[in-house]
């Protein structure tokens, strides 16, 4: 199973982080009533943009399997904390909730 993290600007659709194309580490875990996504990524102008647009982020983790359809998990940031720690080079995104969905279950 392969996991891919994507962070996009929700309005423009612009990709801000794509773990499939960048060397970033990430993990997600339940935190309080929501979720916390930790992303190990060096500081850059993109991180600045993420912090600037923290109210308009789409955060996904895709789970690609060899023998079953892709599961997509989308995180709703809402009022969640979005912060960057320069010392540990860690971007933390707090999400209020998440929705899991299988794209193939929707008709085309």
């Amino acid at each position: 199973m392969k996991q891919t993290l994507l962070v996009k600007h929700a309005v423009s659709g612009r990709m801000l982080i794509d773990s499939g194309k960048q060397d970033v580490s990430f993990s997600s875990k339940p935190e309080g009533n929501g979720w916390q996504i930790d992303i190990g990524v060096p500081w850059s102008g993109t991180i600045e943009e993420i912090l600037k647009h923290k109210d308009e982020l789409n955060v996904f983790i895709f789970y690609d399997y060899d023998d079953q359809p892709t599961l997509k998990t989308w995180y709703y940031v809402g009022k969640g904390l979005v912060a960057y720690d320069r010392d540990s080079q860690l971007l933390t995104i707090g999400a209020q909730s998440r929705i899991e969905y299988y794209p193939h279950e929707y008709s085309v």
Binding site: A10, D55, E56, N58, Y76, V108
Partner: peptide, 11 residues
Amino acid sequence: RGFGAHPHSDM
């Protein structure tokens, strides 16, 4: 044709 499954929030 069209737009496949995707999320939105606060819009």
